[in-house]
Design a protein around this nucleic acid. Structure first.
Length: 133
DNA sequence: GCCAACGTTGGC
DNA sequence: GCCAACGTTGGC
């Protein structure tokens, strides 16, 4: 099983909204690197939900509930379906992540604009550990 | 409000 | 095919 990190501005679509909705289509991604990550997703994979903008923290864990399908008329882009698994007991802020040496190589730290990025098993363990406080 | 990073567009 | 200009994202 693979791990991912997906970001959204809470003003656009928040974790709370996802919980309310029960699941959502993660669409509108129009970046090639992010597209490749979406295409690599398999149902059952887990993903961190990161709030960008003012919040700047990982707030919850999602599961990929359906693999990639075409997003848009030209078939060039894809979306996946996600559902919430659990909120983090304690959100992990970007500041904490940057202060943690074991997360220094995280793709989202190295390339902050990338909206969908892979997370290694080790990084996942560290991050969920931080979330327990 | 500013700026860095990065992607895209368009002229050549 | 190159590269300057421009737009967008996201952190500070």
């Amino acid at each position: 099983m693979a791990y991912w990190l997906m970001k959204s501005e809470p003003e656009a679509y928040s974790w709370e909204q996802l919980v309310k909705d029960g699941s959502t289509e993660w669409d509108g991604v129009r970046n090639n690197a992010a597209r490749l990550h979406l295409k690599a997703m398999v149902p059952g994979d887990q993903a961190l939900f990161y709030h960008s903008g003012d919040a700047r923290a990982v707030v919850g864990i999602m599961e990929i509930s359906r693999g990639p399908q075409a997003d848009g008329a030209d078939g060039q882009w894809v979306s996946v379906q996600v559902k919430p698994v659990a909120p983090l007991a304690k959100p992990v802020t970007l500041k904490e992540m940057k202060a943690e040496p074991r997360l220094a190589e995280m793709q989202m730290i190295r390339q902050s604009r990338l909206s969908v990025s892979p997370v290694t098993d080790a990084e996942w363990a560290v991050l969920t550990g931080l979330a327990k406080g």
